[in-house]
């Protein structure tokens, strides 16, 4: 019996395991799949070329993409086309990462944000402005005015994937 009481006594002086969530956040794993982020190149151009492969791969039909033509005066992404509308319904999305796998330019990446709760269904539709990451330092915001013949290739030369 004393042995059992000693266990109780020992537990009394241990730190509680509770994570005080809203103040302290447990860091997510490197391959955690949270809310999507649309990436940009270092010069500020969007990686997304509006090919809709993510929408085709999506098992829950959460993604809607509409594409439009790029011109050299108003260039959003390298190559011919860009996504003029990009919407993801977070209540449909099951965070499987198929869109990430399907993307030929690694434009869509599942990020770290898991705090997704809404009081209304309409709030759950994330538009392109909400998903795009901010312009990196040294880059220019889209649309950019570029010289003709510079961005002809829409899918870049890829390297080995990294986490």
């Amino acid at each position: 019996m004393i042995k059992g009481l000693l266990t109780t006594l020992r537990e009394m002086f241990q730190q509680p395991v509770t994570i005080q969530y809203p103040e302290v956040k447990r860091p997510v794993r490197t391959r955690f799949k949270g809310r999507h982020v649309l990436k940009r190149y270092e010069n500020g151009l969007e990686k997304c070329i509006g090919c809709s492969l993510c929408a085709a791969a999506c098992p829950a039909d959460a993604i809607f993409v509409e594409s439009a033509e790029n011109t050299d005066e108003e260039r959003y992404s390298p190559g011919e086309r860009y996504a003029s509308t990009y919407e993801i319904n977070m209540l449909r999305c099951i965070f499987c990462g198929f869109c990430e796998d399907a993307c030929p330019t690694e434009a869509i990446v599942l990020g770290d944000n898991y705090e997704l709760s809404f009081t209304d269904r309409h709030q759950s539709i994330y538009t392109k402005d909400m998903l795009l990451e901010p312009v990196p330092p040294g880059g220019k915001p889209t649309p950019q005015n570029t010289e003709p013949g510079k961005y002809t290739r829409s899918v870049p030369v890829m390297q080995d994937p990294q986490d």
Binding site: Y21, K25, R26, M90, L91, C93, I94, F95, C96, Y114, E115, L116, S117, F118, T119, D120, R121, S124
Partner: peptide, 13 residues
């Protein structure tokens, strides 16, 4: 009242 997204949501979610 509130919709929580995620499949399944984390406990934090």
């Amino acid at each position: 009242d509130v919709y929580v997204a995620g499949c399944p949501p984390r406990p934090e979610g």
